[in-house]
């Protein structure tokens, strides 16, 4: 039971980071119908910029406490990423808005490579250790579950950010303009919405979220690296599609579901497929010797952790081709 609870907590923490990144994918997709492949790399830039700022602040004003330092780093990372998001949209995507579908996707992959290469030139190929500003030693365990202050902060702040974003989209004028643009560019611009501005704003917002996720990621795991954005990027993209791409609620659900599936899957798949737990099978397969003395014969195990996401995605899409919470749209949408 303790183990299960612990796995759920682990899954929630990872899942909320996925969800935060997935929101960026889904916002851009909802409005432009574009998979912004470079989104994961914006996360990486956010993490590395904040690392640079933290090191700088610690050197110049060593007296400053951990929280203010992190805050300064976070704000500067967000500023850099927002500017970058704007520039990317302006230079790489805007001209392709009416191009065939594949063109912007290739550009996006190109931008992703470019960001990684530039980061590699600037920060080198080594893994950098991210200073431990917030305590990562666990608190007093509750019901046998260990949780660290960083993890609590991640859970709380992502919950706040997601709520904030939903309020922004559903309750404000900007949000209404965004929804209108997503529905139909041309009609929205006829109704007096500056669609170019709205699209740019969406990119900037998404990049800010990615920057926050990047800082969270690095504070939690204590590492930063030029290729660190790739895996969370792919996972978050999967989460966004799983939830129904273009749907904010879906991205959150997708992220959390993915986090839980990965963590519980890695934790239990091994013992579930352990032939030693199925005496009949073990006997037919002649495994007595392997199974004796607490041995095991696990067909699948944590080595398949990285494909759970894709398998779940495949299954969901077969039954609901537009994701868990996506709207059912016709072919011509």
């Amino acid at each position: 039971m303790e183990t299960l609870l612990q796995q759920i907590v682990n899954g929630l923490v990872v899942g909320s980071v996925y969800a935060l990144v997935a929101l960026g994918y889904t916002m851009v997709y909802g409005i432009l119908g574009l998979i912004n492949f470079a989104h994961g790399d914006v996360l990486m830039v956010g993490a590395l910029v904040s690392l640079q700022v933290v090191l700088f602040v610690q050197k110049t004003w060593p007296a400053l406490g951990a929280f203010p330092t992190l805050l300064i780093a976070l704000v500067s990372a967000m500023a850099v990423c927002m500017a970058m998001g704007y520039i990317i949209e302006r230079t790489a995507y805007r001209r392709l808005r009416n191009a065939p579908r594949l063109a912007p996707l290739i550009t996006a992959i190109g931008v992703s490579f470019l960001l990684q290469t530039l980061a590699m030139i600037i920060w080198g190929r080594n893994y950098h250790s991210f200073p431990q500003l917030i305590d990562t030693t666990p608190l007093q365990p509750i019901a046998g579950v260990f949780i660290t202050p960083v993890q609590i902060i991640i859970l709380l702040s992502s919950a706040c950010l997601m709520t904030g974003l939903i309020l922004l989209v559903t309750r404000t004028k900007l949000g209404r303009a965004m929804r209108a643009t997503a529905e139909n560019h041309r009609v929205a611009s006829l109704m007096g919405v500056d669609t170019n501005k709205i699209i740019a704003t969406t990119f900037v917002l998404g990049s800010a979220l990615a920057a926050i996720a990047g800082v969270m990621f690095s504070t939690n795991y204590g590492v930063a690296h030029y290729a660190m954005g790739f895996i969370p990027g792919i996972k978050a993209f999967t989460a966004a599609v799983l939830g129904g791409i273009g749907n904010l609620g879906g991205a959150m659900v997708g992220g959390i579901v993915l986090g839980l599936v990965e963590s519980i899957g890695a934790g239990y798949l091994g013992s579930m497929t352990d032939l030693c737990n199925l005496p009949v099978w073990a006997q037919t397969a002649n495994l007595q010797e392997t199974c004796s003395n607490g041995g095991s014969f696990e067909l699948l195990s944590s080595n398949y952790q990285d494909i759970f996401a894709f398998v779940i995605l495949g299954i969901v899409l077969i039954f609901r081709p537009t994701g868990l919470m996506g709207e059912r749209v016709s072919d011509r949408a």
Binding site: Q7, A266, G270, E298, Q305
Partner: peptide
């Protein structure tokens, strides 16, 4: 007690470590 696996790009090992802990 068990063989667990990760990959050379991973950063989160909590799931497998929780299993090992049990």
């Amino acid at each position: 007690s068990s063989r667990e696996f990760t990959n050379n790009q991973a950063t989160d090992f909590l799931a497998i470590l929780t299993k090992i802990k049990s």
